[in-house]
Design a protein around this nucleic acid. Sequence first.
DNA 1: GTGAAAGCGCTAACAC
DNA 2: GTGTTAGCGCTTTCAC
Lengths: 351, 351
Amino acid sequence: MGESRSGNGSPEGSGALVEVRTLADLARLAGVSAGTVSRALAGKALVNAETRERIQELARQYGFRPNQMASKLRSRRTGAIGVVIPLGHEQRRQISDPFFLTLLGHLADELTESGYDLMLSRAIPDGTADWLERITGSGMVDGVLVIGQADQSAVIDRVASSYRPLVSWGAHQAGQAHCAVGTDNALGGRLAAEHLIACGARRLAFLGETTAAEIALRHAGAAAAAQAAGLPLTHVPVNLADAEMGPQIKAALAGTGAAHEGLVCASDLIAMSALRCLHETGRAVPADVQIVGFDDLPLAQQTAPPLTTVRQEIAEGARLMVETLKGRIEGRDMPGTVMPPRLIVRETTRH
Amino acid sequence: MGESRSGNGSPEGSGALVEVRTLADLARLAGVSAGTVSRALAGKALVNAETRERIQELARQYGFRPNQMASKLRSRRTGAIGVVIPLGHEQRRQISDPFFLTLLGHLADELTESGYDLMLSRAIPDGTADWLERITGSGMVDGVLVIGQADQSAVIDRVASSYRPLVSWGAHQAGQAHCAVGTDNALGGRLAAEHLIACGARRLAFLGETTAAEIALRHAGAAAAAQAAGLPLTHVPVNLADAEMGPQIKAALAGTGAAHEGLVCASDLIAMSALRCLHETGRAVPADVQIVGFDDLPLAQQTAPPLTTVRQEIAEGARLMVETLKGRIEGRDMPGTVMPPRLIVRETTRH
DNA sequence: GTGAAAGCGCTAACAC
DNA sequence: GTGTTAGCGCTTTCAC
């Protein structure tokens, strides 16, 4: 149910009440066949310019738009891209991560630009692993973008092995079968830790849970840098998705005997939380504790003090994802991309 | 182009390579008719339980999923809701407002919960006013949710007059024809200003551009409260969508001869910017200047000091929007809702 | 340049 | 219970 038509079915300035919902209706009005109307509305060249104009004008008057379902069924092209956010088990049933949301915004822009509609799905991988197939196999989309792999890399791999037009945002791991666009997370983690070390921090901690591959790589990079410098790096697995990060962070920071002087945060959001915890417990940033975030979301500039962070090129990443996907839809075998991260030095480190 | 099937077309553990893409294919395999397969897969009761199981098992083996396009065309029910974000002229071509993104996340949750897909469109109302009709009239969605009216209230009104299943987030204005869910913005603005006044602020300013009706109402509410108290309220029309809010705010605050003591901000984002500007220019919050935000986004708790703000119930609003839309899809004439705002006192005011 | 006809893959009457 | 039939509204050969 639910009317799916706009327009009141009457031509402007006329009292006639002809319902025109189909090509055939309009064809009758124009005195041509449905085929001609179809061609005219599609702007095909084979139609007499004058008839085409007339038909288009008529369509405008009656507010007629061809039914997309029928069109897509017939032409076997949906013009839509599925965008899926797999929510790992650790997360609440809520799309709220500002990084994903920002990426989503950019994807919406890129897809619209390319003439695609965007079908958004929130997937909760609960037991049965067909959350992705439900989208790839629905016949509703020409391709799929997966925002973040969470802990579902295996599922994505499996599906991608037989469904080509799929690109994910995330990490590249050894043996990974699916096409991904993302940042060099290990390098990012290393940059962050090295910067802290260069700024004089000696006791380091990494804040963030490492079930997602991306975060694990950031941690590994930071750990490598710490080891190279012969310094300790504590791992504090705070949960990203949670509003109650504060208590976790405080507990963790208080728990260790030694006060940490340098915090590598798995995301800007965690960094903001840490910033606030330190503020509340009376420790000065960057004088007592130095902090580096990850992502460089717009809000990283708005914190007080502004956040030193490892930038991911989100807009560029969105562009690449869509470009790569379009290539794959056309049958080309586009590779993934690893983008270099960039350290943005602001005021939470003593540079 | 673009394969839209997953599965490799062969049953698990068998070498057979039968392509099963249609109901007819599966019907042949199962030795029944297409109609029966359709009923079995839809879980209809009229099918022999045993045949149903067998068919479903077969479908699973071959990774078969009925084509949604065909299904929807035939059943005249799309199972999708269009979500549109009209970007007013003042904004960049980018969905980035964290309030909208947060609302979008909640809408995605609610719609998924109700079994609907979500078709996201970014609409740029450029000249021709058919950005909404393109969605309502496409036959692709059972209903439409509009996130924010921007300066397009007239267009939404016009479309809504003949397209019933439409609900927007935003303001209720006199003479408004479309169904909206939103907060009592004038009351919110009043609460903010009254609180500042009660906390001792005497020179007030409202930060935010008022082309969108919601913001205009917040301003009006604040202005009314100021007038009732016999106090001045300067209007500083900073642009919401812009990363360069900082300079605008600084210029505006520096420009006026008198230093403002109380800032009513049109959004939490503007409040964060103001917070930072004041920090940079060495004015203490809340000692010198007090600030009230609007929205109560999660990040309002993360600022230093945490933001006093006027809370909008975003999750509840999303739930209401979907509930209202579902009613309208079923033909009921659901009214809109005005939700009460709530002042959340944190640390940017001297309560 | 235009019309007629044949489906796209599915669902829903209607028979049996 | 299940098969058969007739479309959903459009696009696209194929004639003319």
